[in-house]
């Protein structure tokens, strides 16, 4: 095997190890381990409806995964996608309820508003980082809590339908909803939007001067600065784009999957985005596969919780192991060294 195949091979090895650990946990916890493992592995793909669920969940994961990929690529550890995803959802919901537009313009207006709000909110930690070097990880996490509190306030005091049973907004205007694109499932037009965004991000990152500057700044900010790149501007721009994408994700999710806004806790897609980005090695096109994989094990865990005796939170243990091993430079490094040595001998 060649050394250049090492990275994909290593990713596969990590996933395999994580799955083995999942099996071990299931066997320890479940009364019927084999049956439970089969549910976990097979059930997400068993019916058309379940495949639909898998794709539905992959859509928000692709949005946040793409957003976090760009940030990580610029070496920015910002986990603000979580709060932005939520808050932009509130913004999109407000427009879906209150604006009266036709079925073509209404979702566009709602998504555009959510995305722009996301970009602006994301710019705040970006500016703090670029100008004063404030730790973007801490500020973005604090912002998640702040945005959640303000969003929940808007839901409870401005959008809430008193006639609804629980904390839920007024019904969206039917014109605002995204159309279903696969009959028999809830897969919505958001899938097309996110795929377009992913291709656009790929072009941006690898074919434009801005993308080049982003990658250079991420590789070594000081060096990029010496070679004439205005890194502060790159950092703010990256935050704007990442926030735009995360905000779009929240808006699309709300208009694609719901008829009322009813999130009373953070949905968690922002942190999952970090995992998607790592699985995708911060590569936009690979985000598709990474999000589908994460959605697959998530749905497997949910179905397992419903059909057997193992709670779905098991999956967060598996996810943590994937992150730890994927980001471990030394893990399986000896193998790569051996491959390199072999190649060197052959050519030498």
């Amino acid at each position: 095997m060649k050394a250049k195949y090492f990275e994909p091979f290593r990713t596969l090895a990590v996933i395999l190890i994580a799955l083995v650990i999942a099996f071990v946990i299931i066997s320890l916890v479940s009364d019927r381990p084999l049956e439970t493992i089969l549910i976990f592995l097979w059930e997400p793909l068993a019916t058309k409806g379940h495949i639909g669920n898998l794709i539905e969940m992959a859509i928000p994961l692709m949005f946040t995964g793409l957003s976090v990929s760009l940030l990580f690529r610029a070496n920015l550890f910002n986990l603000g996608a979580e709060g932005i995803f939520y808050f932009s959802g509130v913004v999109a919901a407000a427009i879906a309820i209150h604006a009266s537009l036709n079925g073509f313009l209404h979702p566009i207006a709602a998504i555009a508003a959510g995305s722009v709000v996301g970009a602006l909110l994301s710019a705040i930690p970006g500016i703090l980082k670029a100008k004063w070097n404030a730790n973007e990880l801490v500020t973005s996490l604090m912002f998640n809590n702040i945005l959640f509190g303000v969003g929940l306030y808007i839901l409870n005091y401005q959008l809430r339908d008193a006639k609804a049973f629980s904390s839920a907004s007024y019904k969206f205007e039917p014109t605002a909803l995204l159309s279903r694109i696969w009959p028999g499932t809830r897969v919505h037009a958001g899938l097309i939007i996110v795929l377009v965004m992913i291709v656009a991000a790929h072009v941006f990152l690898y074919k434009t001067k801005w993308g080049y500057e982003l990658r250079m700044t991420g590789a070594n900010r000081a060096f990029a600065g010496y070679s004439g790149i205005r890194t502060a501007r790159v950092i703010i721009l990256t935050h704007l784009i990442a926030g735009f994408i995360a905000g779009m994700g929240g808006s699309v999710e709300v208009l694609g999957m719901y008829t009322r806004f009813n999130w009373v806790s953070l949905p968690g897609y922002g942190l999952d985005g970090a995992l998607v980005a790592m699985l995708a090695k911060n590569n936009p096109l690979s985000v598709i596969g990474a999000a589908l994989f994460l959605s697959y094990i998530r749905n497997g865990a949910d179905l397992m919780a419903r059909l057997s005796d193992v709670p779905s939170e098991m999956i967060s243990i598996v996810q943590a192991i994937i992150i730890l091993l994927l980001s471990a430079e030394q893990f399986l490094k000896f193998w790569k060294n051996r491959m390199l040595l072999k190649e060197a001998r052959k050519h030498g």
Binding site: M278, P311, E313, M314, S316, Q319, L324, L325, F331
Partner: peptide, 23 residues
Amino acid sequence: QFKTHIILGGIAINMFASGGTVF
């Protein structure tokens, strides 16, 4: 030992704790 990025390692620990404690 494994040279995991310290921030990503910390994220993993937090993810494990948040779901693992509920589990």
